[in-house]
Design a protein around this nucleic acid. Structure first.
Length: 118
DNA sequence: ATTCTGACAGCAA
DNA sequence: TTTGCTGCCAGAA
């Protein structure tokens, strides 16, 4: 999305795309960085997804970044939520069971954008 | 301009 | 099976 009046960077589209997909994650579902990266066509640029989410709080809209975990279902980004328990709490609030910072039944909770979103 | 790092993932030893 | 290195791209120093 191009916002007139603001600095336009080439990566802005990629970042916005990450935010867009993240916002499309259904309630009570989670996805992985790699899945988003693959949906964007970058393939192995999962790190960029994490980087995008790292600055997601700079965005005016709410980004359910807590629904994005690594491919193991591990809450690797919990430490970026200020309090380490925030991410876990948000996920549990959506009915997701977290054990030792790991999502239980991750296969059932997993939501693949390139598959579900088509 | 160059180097390092980062909320990951895949592949090689 | 586990550990470690590399690739990906962008941003900060």
């Amino acid at each position: 999305m191009k916002i007139p009046g603001q600095k336009q960077k080439k990566s802005n589209d990629f970042f916005q795309n990450v935010y867009d997909v993240t916002c499309l994650i259904p309630y009570g579902r989670v996805t992985s960085y790699g899945a988003i990266a693959r949906y964007l066509g970058s393939g192995r640029s999962a790190r960029m997804v994490g980087w995008a989410l790292n600055v997601c709080h700079t965005r005016p809209e709410f980004i359910p970044a807590h629904r994005v975990v690594n491919r193991n279902g591990l809450l690797t980004g919990k430490r970026h939520f200020g309090n380490s328990s925030t991410m876990k709490q948000l996920l549990e609030n959506e009915g997701i069971i977290i054990d030792n910072d790991c999502i239980l039944n991750f296969s059932e909770r997993f939501w693949d954008p390139s598959k579900e979103l088509n």
